[in-house]
């Protein structure tokens, strides 16, 4: 069976995830399997449950039904396997930039370990800080940094303990376009260097297509056999699952790709399939072309 083999092979596996808040069904039946080293971007109309899905994956909340596996082991509450970068609140206000970044080492491996390896780690952290042009700010507190700087620190903070999966919820959502592009390139560089698995939520389709190797659309705009139900009473599903490497053969760090025709066409298609309340595809006809895609109905 496809699902079983996917679960064995892949680093992250979600099986029939459902999330209900009171009367409000947010996620209907999410099936998702993500291979290691994949850069998954996730888009969808606002309010259709992207952040909810992310919270379930990191273990901030538990699903109403369904199971989540990280490397074949059932995942419950948050742990260092899954790192996270939020749009806000990723940094601790009472710690300096440097202390924020090394906090993970102290918490994960213990304070005595940290003290014995302090110099080594400081050197490493300073190397990375320099790379992201923050070397002069290591003694500053988060409130003294700009939004872009904060997110760079937050990414370093999450990566220092090398999580198996890094989840990001609109991490660049509050940044101006210039900074945003810099951050995108920086993230791609880190991703290539560390070979980690990323799940990246964004409301910006361009960003999603540009960054990802795989693109998922989470949306309530679909139809199924429960015809009498208001579309917004239904929970979201994954309505598209694209293998972006098929479309983007070009060098990945060239931002020019954003202006290419394939890129434009792809965005148009995603917008139609995921964001249009008038275009409701039937569950059985979703565009799930990625090889790891599966759906239990």
């Amino acid at each position: 069976m496809k699902e079983k083999s996917l679960q064995k092979k892949n680093i992250l596996h979600l099986s029939s995830i459902r999330k209900v808040y009171g009367e409000n069904v947010v996620l209907e039946d999410i099936d998702l399997s993500v291979a290691a080293n994949e850069f998954c971007t996730m888009v969808g109309p606002s309010g259709h449950g992207k952040s909810t899905l992310l919270r379930l994956i990191i273990g901030q909340e538990l699903p109403t039904a369904g199971e989540i596996f990280v490397e074949q082991r059932k995942a419950m509450f948050a742990n260092p396997d899954r790192g996270v970068v939020y749009q806000q609140y990723s940094l601790f206000p009472h710690l300096t930039v440097l202390d924020n970044i090394v906090l993970g080492i102290k918490l994960r491996y213990g304070f005595s370990y940290w003290r014995s390896r302090k110099q080594e780690y400081l050197k490493k952290v300073r190397y990375y800080l320099k790379k992201v042009h923050l070397e002069k700010h290591e003694r500053k507190f988060p409130h003294e940094l700009s939004g872009g700087m904060r997110q760079r620190v937050a990414i370093l903070q999450a990566l220092i303990i090398s999580p198996k999966i890094l989840l990001m919820d609109e991490p660049f959502g509050a940044l101006d376009p210039g900074t945003r592009e810099d951050m995108q390139l920086y993230l791609l560089e880190l991703w290539k260097e560390t070979k980690m698995t990323i799940i990246f939520i964004t409301h910006d389709l361009e960003e999603a297509v540009f960054l990802g190797t795989r693109l998922l659309t989470v949306s309530q705009f679909y139809s199924d056999d429960r015809k009498d139900l208001d579309p917004l009473k239904k929970g979201s599903r994954i309505v598209t699952d694209l293998d972006l490497t098929k479309y983007m053969k070009q060098d990945i760090s060239a931002t020019d790709v954003k202006y290419s025709k394939v890129f434009r066409e792809l965005i148009k298609q995603i917008r139609l399939e995921g964001f249009s309340p008038d275009y409701l595809q039937h569950v059985k006809k979703f565009n799930l072309e990625h090889k790891d895609s599966f759906q239990t109905l």
Binding site: P80, V84, Q88, Y89, S90, L103, A158
Partner: peptide, 10 residues
């Protein structure tokens, strides 16, 4: 988020 964040940091 901050609590979850610290859990993910170990």
């Amino acid at each position: 988020e901050m609590i979850t964040k610290s859990l993910t940091l170990g």
